[in-house]
């Protein structure tokens, strides 16, 4: 929930960040490995407690994979979903550190690029985040040119919550409804450079549903290099 608070604070900024508009065209088939999607769908109960829903989360994960694959197929990039994609356990110690570093870089981007009060003056307008040259280890592991890291949280107001929102609205008290939030980070596995990053934070969308998930992914992948 604390993490979602960060998203809420970034809600007014809209743009994606990128270093390039195009994926490398070295090989015919550009391969993007989809790292295990960190996703959770939940019900927001009347009292504000988020209740995770396993069935929705499972469906949401499938929808996201399908939508991502469809989206990138349009510009001849292939989304690679490793076997055991939910399990980071088959990575060795060093590979796991790279994944963890990528998450740390993602958090840093979110904080320092999207929160005006945490802007780093030395960064000026350059977007130069990187996970370093060890990214090559992931390239070897997955035989891919890029790695895509996706984080998604999607909560839905229960009917009780909706009622509380309505009562609150009548009395002039703002009550938070469901929220859809996420980040996506695209890393060049030759250099470790983050070549594109975006985040999503809004009070609409529905990952439980295939069509709506396609719309979410389209929005999340705004200005994704082609």
């Amino acid at each position: 929930m604390a993490t979602l608070a960060v998203f809420a604070l970034t809600a007014c900024v809209q743009t994606a960040h990128k270093t390039t508009g195009e994926l490398k065209s070295g090989s015919e088939n550009r391969r993007i490995v989809l790292m295990p999607v960190d996703i959770e769908l939940s019900v927001l109960n009347a009292g504000g407690v988020n209740e995770p829903r396993a069935d929705w989360t499972n469906a949401g994960r499938e929808h996201v994979r399908t939508a991502l694959a469809a989206h990138t197929a349009a510009f001849e990039a292939e989304i690679v979903v490793p076997d055991n994609s939910d399990i980071l356990d088959d990575l060795d110690k060093e590979q796991l550190q790279i994944v963890k570093l990528a998450n740390a870089v993602g958090s840093s981007i979110l904080l320092h690029e999207y929160l005006p009060q945490l802007k780093l003056p030395t960064k000026k307008d350059q977007f130069d985040w990187t996970i370093g040259p060890d990214a090559k280890l992931l390239k070897e592991k997955y035989d891919a040119d890029y790695a895509l890291f996706v984080f998604l949280r999607d909560s839905y107001a229960s009917s009780g919550r909706v009622a509380v929102i309505i009562i609150g609205a009548i009395l002039g008290v703002g009550v938070q409804g469901g929220i859809q939030a996420g980040t996506a980070t695209l890393v060049d596995l030759d250099t470790g450079q983050v070549v594109w990053f975006n985040r999503l934070a809004r009070a609409s969308g529905d990952l439980r549903n295939g069509d709506a998930a396609t719309e979410t992914i389209k929005l999340l992948l705004t200005e994704f290099p082609t």
Partner: peptide, 21 residues
């Protein structure tokens, strides 16, 4: 516990929404 927390906070939310805080 989770069930209990949800039920209790749900009750509280209606109570507080109705009392404006």
């Amino acid at each position: 516990r989770m069930k209990n927390v949800i039920e209790t906070t749900n009750f509280l939310a209606f109570f507080s929404a109705a009392t404006g805080g």
